[in-house]
């Protein structure tokens, strides 16, 4: 039976230095000025450091898109996979190497459109994977097409007169599909985001974290959302902390998304069940 305990740990008491976690030869990264993905990357690294996970025990699986490039800058085991399928690759990886901490970094299009089925089934199985969905509301890398989370009236290269489709609430989807841990945070609250990711990493089972990120060049510019500082400052009005979830809309916008931890429940973890099941079957077959 495969051993699910990690072999090494890092010293989480030491001060966090992101340069120890980055592939310095690849830096500075390719992302546009002000891109929220860089803030999310820092929060992820700080959370990994806080959890005391060693580089050799961390596996980051990415799909395609701006978010898919995030993993490549992490000095750990990283995998750049096909569009929409990081969760499928991560499922195989986690089943083969349960001692690794598997983190999937994916985007709104990668996770909800191309990989929508993989998300719901990963959540349903509840395999011990942490899924970080960087939601910047657009397909940034391919030229700014509308994604499943593009808000109504927003101008993108495929919605020149404004988007009209309803948006996807990824957290509600993951929770309904059976994820054990679901949370959302904005990049503006980076320390809170780090704490949320750390909780997700410690959770045993499928943990889904939606990070509200900013696409400054492709999305913010086209929609007159201001420069990077204005965009990140406006996140305060776009979110609603969990403790105010039931409050009337003021002072929050009517469509403000709630942030915080929405679901945290202990469910049977898929890897353990599978291994126990396999052992039981082998026990039946072999005399």
């Amino acid at each position: 039976m495969l051993d699910a305990t990690p072999k090494t740990t890092c010293d989480q008491k030491a001060p966090f230095d992101p340069r120890e976690w980055l592939r310095l030869a690849a830096m500075p990264h390719f992302m546009c000025p002000g891109c929220g993905h860089g803030i999310a990357l820092r929060a992820l690294l700080a959370a990994v450091h806080d959890c005391g996970i060693a580089k050799d025990d961390l596996a980051v699986v990415c799909g395609i898109g701006c978010s898919g490039r995030v993993g490549g800058y992490i000095d750990a085991n990283t995998m750049h996979t096909t569009h929409g399928r990081p969760l499928a690759f991560a499922t195989g990886l986690k089943l083969a190497r349960p001692d690794l901490t598997v983190v999937v970094v994916t985007g709104d299009g990668d996770c909800l459109a191309i990989g929508g089925n993989h998300l719901i089934h990963a959540a349903r199985r509840n395999l011990d994977i942490t899924c970080l969905m960087l939601n910047n509301e657009v397909y940034g890398m391919t030229g700014g097409q509308a994604s499943p989370t593009t808000a109504a009236t927003r101008v993108t290269s495929t919605t020149q007169s404004g988007a009209i489709e309803p948006t996807f609430d990824a957290c509600a989807l993951a929770a309904a599909a059976g994820a054990g841990f679901v949370g959302r945070e904005v990049t503006r609250q980076a320390p809170a985001l780090k704490t949320l990711i750390a909780r997700a990493l410690r959770h045993k089972g499928f943990a889904f974290v939606e990070v509200m990120s900013d696409c400054t060049e492709i999305y913010g510019r086209k929609n007159d959302l201001g420069e990077a500082p204005e965009m990140i400052l406006s996140q305060k009005a776009d979110m609603r902390p969990e403790q105010h979830r039931d409050a009337p809309d003021q002072p929050f916008r009517p469509n403000a998304l709630p942030t915080g931890v929405f679901v945290e429940r202990d469910l049977p973890e898929y890897g353990e069940r599978l291994r126990a099941h396999a052992a039981a079957i082998r026990g039946e077959i072999t005399p």
Partner: peptide, 18 residues
């Protein structure tokens, strides 16, 4: 430091951990 997307800012503060 937290909000720099490019890891370009480093703050030294012995009183408050990173």
């Amino acid at each position: 430091e937290w909000l720099c997307p490019d890891f370009a800012v480093t703050v030294r503060n012995e009183g408050v951990p990173a």
